[in-house]
Simulated scan of single mutants.
Amino acid sequence: MLADEGERRAQAGTLDSEVHLPGEWMNALIGFIGSVLPGWRDDPRRPAQTSEDALTAQLCAKLASASRHTPGWDFLQFRREEPDAADGRRAIDLAVAPSGSVIWIEGREYTEYQTLLPIECKRLPTPKGHKRDEREYLYSRFSTTGGVQRFKAGHHGSSHDRAAMIAYVQERDIPSWAVQLDDWIDGLESDAVEGWSAADKLSLLEYDPPSRVAGLSSAHARSSGLGGIRLVHLWIEM
């Protein structure tokens, strides 16, 4: 999903300890992650879970296994609760990093100690609770726990210009949530919430009803003198 199958096959084969990849390779990586989602959700051996932490731990295990057994992706590792490179007090839900290789993308070096792609995971809808904002996938009025909010503020991925978010859709369907998020962003703009505008809206790129998985994209200006960041959103109906 979100990547050409031929591009993925082109990476297959024995890898040297130093790998040079084109910039668009990141699209193939995100496509690989999206392709794993339906099989993970539908795996009869997967224990039933609803919490974000438990689902993300399961998904991390599935991605690690899938990459290890898929030619062309076996030089990657997936890690949970990885300290952010710029602010070690904050943890990234999922991080993709090299495993046993040094990867170069557009002149930038990544070792097993550097994150290739930071990923934030959220539930839709946001669980009800004290000081929980229903818009938490985007923004929270109570804290800095909003998913997109964290990237816009540079709290996550400040050293990256690209990141991803995964939504575990536990009620309603994906198209209705795409409309809902548009409405929330309109509300943030009309309420003059600093830094939010219609430019932050997500674009639905691809929705596959049989697999109940979708890909969306968004682009956001950031504060603190950082350049913009592009987010790819992978949503799966649970």
Rank of each mutant, 00 (worst) to 15 (best):
I174M: 07
V193Y: 00
A199Q: 06
G187L: 08
L205A: 09
D183H: 15
Y168D: 02
Q170N: 10
S190E: 05
S197V: 04
D183T: 15
E171G: 01
S203I: 15
L204Q: 03
I166C: 01
G187R: 08
S176M: 14
W196G: 07
A164I: 08
V179N: 07
L202N: 02
L204M: 15
D173I: 12
L205R: 05
Y168M: 01
M165T: 03
A164W: 00
E206P: 01
A178R: 11
I166Q: 01
G195S: 08
A164Q: 00
L188C: 07
S176Q: 11
A198C: 11
L205E: 14
A167L: 02
P175T: 06
Y207W: 12
I185T: 02
E189S: 13
L188H: 02
I174G: 03
A199S: 08
Q170L: 07
A167F: 00
D182T: 08
S197E: 05
D186T: 09
G195A: 05
P175H: 05
A178W: 02
E194F: 13
V169T: 09
V193N: 04
A199C: 07
W196H: 03
A192L: 15
E206D: 14
S197D: 11
D173Q: 14
I174V: 14
M165E: 03
I185Y: 01
D173A: 15
A198V: 10
A199Y: 03
A178H: 08
A164V: 10
L181I: 12
L202T: 01
R172T: 14
S190K: 09
D173T: 15
A178Y: 01
K201W: 02
E206A: 12
S176I: 04
L205S: 05
M165G: 02
E171T: 02
I185P: 00
I166W: 00
G187A: 11
D186P: 03
Y207E: 07
D186N: 09
W184G: 00
D186W: 09
W184M: 03
E194Y: 10
A164L: 11
E189D: 11
L204C: 06
L205G: 07
E189C: 12
D200L: 02
L181Y: 03
D173F: 10
A192I: 12
V179W: 08
S176G: 09
I185V: 07
E189N: 05
A199V: 02
W177E: 06
S176A: 13
A198Y: 00
I166P: 00
A178N: 07
G195P: 00
I174D: 04
S197I: 03
M165W: 02
W184F: 09
S176R: 05
E189G: 12
L202I: 13
A198N: 05
S190D: 09
S190F: 10
D191A: 06
E194T: 13
W196F: 15
W184Y: 14
S203E: 12
Q180N: 09
I166V: 04
S203V: 15
L181T: 09
E189Q: 15
Q180C: 13
E206H: 11
A167T: 04
R172W: 12
D191H: 04
W196E: 04
D173S: 15
E194M: 14
L205Y: 11
L202V: 06
V179L: 12
Y207L: 14
E189I: 13
D183K: 13
L205N: 08
E206C: 13
A167V: 05
G195R: 03
